[in-house]
Design a protein around this nucleic acid. Structure first.
Length: 387
DNA sequence: AATACGTGGCC
DNA sequence: TGGCCAAGTAT
């Protein structure tokens, strides 16, 4: 067992712990939110909700949750779902490896657990995409096992209760909060205890504009008692997303279909369809002019092939590039900020062969394919200029 | 241990 | 607007 004192945390006496549990659960019984997944004890439902809720707001999740269970009502249906359908179910939610990992886990359940959701912490933890938080949440909520579920809410609430002087953003400090929860958790109602702390942390003890005087456990809170609520939790600022500059090629053929390409990378937006993208060092009005009028301009410097030229080579196409300017599309990921310039054109000649997975799609067909946000923004910006 | 991985809402 | 934040996990 981790020594809390070494982290400067003094745990409460047994009586205070019992009294805290009572106070918190009484508050939860009166104030818990009525959420779709709280009406079910089906571990599959709990699992879906917990994965969706990772780094994602409740209001965002609710419609996705309902539709997901409609499309994939059982573990088996999820295990057998085609990739396009899987990504379409998650389109717009973000962190798409979540749903890929879920399918892998569903296949694990079919092959290693005879199609029945594992009912032990060990078994649950063995599933792809389930880390310590989610394993604790499913164990406690669906199986009534006394396992802590330490998420950002719980760490924030605990940091204020005990004036924890450790960065909650540092993953290595999670074990401290885990150890505290192992002592605090109510073994009779572990699922409710975990959820009560999360509910408290997401509203009354929110990271911004908290209302600490409304907390049912303010008498237990060292930070509240000492007037140091503003100091907790400790959290280092995040790094700024790195700017990336891209040209998006929006190219249509004589039948009004547009060229889309599948992202075969296993990293950012894996498996999604997108307009062909070419990364450039940066934008400048000068390079933009050279791009648009490369036929007539006489560049002073020897530049490499233009994005248009590279594109025509890579995709075996000949394109009549249009002299149109579009609004720059911006999209911020957690770690990158994309700046996208749109270049439009019409193909004059196409080859059968292309060394990529590409598709010519009419706009009406777009909805049948998973398209992430940046591509939707590109399409909107393209339409705006074309109208 | 530090970084990659989405998106939308709020101020 | 830019920065912060949200029921984390994999590598």
């Amino acid at each position: 067992m981790l020594d809390l004192e070494k982290y400067g945390v003094t745990m409460w006496e047994k009586d205070k712990i019992l009294s805290f549990r009572q106070k918190l659960l009484a508050w939860y019984d009166e104030n818990k939110r009525d959420l779709p997944w709280r009406r079910s004890k089906n571990p599959y439902h709990i699992w879906v909700s917990e994965i969706m809720l990772q780094q994602t707001r409740v209001d965002t999740v609710i419609p996705y949750y309902e539709r997901f269970l409609d499309w994939f009502p059982t573990v088996e249906s999820l295990a057998n779902a085609p990739e396009e359908r899987l990504l379409k179910a998650w389109e717009g939610l973000g962190y798409y490896s979540r749903v890929r990992n879920m399918q892998t886990a569903a296949q694990q359940i079919m092959s290693e657990f005879e199609g029945k959701f594992p009912s032990t912490y060990e078994g649950i933890s063995s599933l792809k995409g389930i880390g310590p938080y989610t394993a604790g949440a499913i164990s406690s909520i669906a199986f009534n096992l006394p396992q802590p579920a330490v998420d950002g809410n719980v760490m924030r609430v605990l940091a204020r209760l005990f004036e924890v002087n450790h960065d909650i953003g540092n993953p290595s400090n999670r074990k401290l909060f885990q150890a505290m929860m192992e002592v605090l958790i109510d073994p009779d109602r572990p699922g409710d205890f975990n959820q009560a702390l999360m509910d408290l942390g997401s509203d009354i003890e929110a990271p911004v504009n908290p209302r600490p005087e409304e907390s049912p456990v303010k008498e237990f809170s060292a930070a509240y008692q000492h007037g140091t609520m503003d100091c907790y939790p400790i959290k280092a600022p995040k790094k700024k997303p790195i700017p990336i500059f891209l040209k998006a090629l929006v190219v249509q053929n004589s039948q009004g279909q547009f060229l889309l390409e599948k992202n075969e990378s296993e990293k950012l937006l894996a498996g999604f369809w997108h307009f062909p993208l070419i990364e450039v060092d940066e934008f400048s009005d000068q390079t933009q002019d050279l791009d648009l009028f490369s036929q007539v301009a006489e560049p002073i410097l020897e530049l490499g092939p233009s994005p248009q030229e590279s594109f025509e080579q890579d995709y075996d196409l000949e394109v009549d590039w249009q002299d149109l300017r579009f609004e720059e599309v911006k999209h911020i990921f957690s770690h990158r900020k994309w700046h996208i310039q749109i270049i439009a054109g019409r193909v004059t000649e196409t080859q059968e062969y292309a060394d990529r997975e590409v598709l010519w799609l009419s706009p009406e067909e777009f909805i049948n394919y998973p398209l992430a946000k940046p591509q939707q923004k590109i399409w909107q910006a393209y339409l705006k200029r074309s109208c």
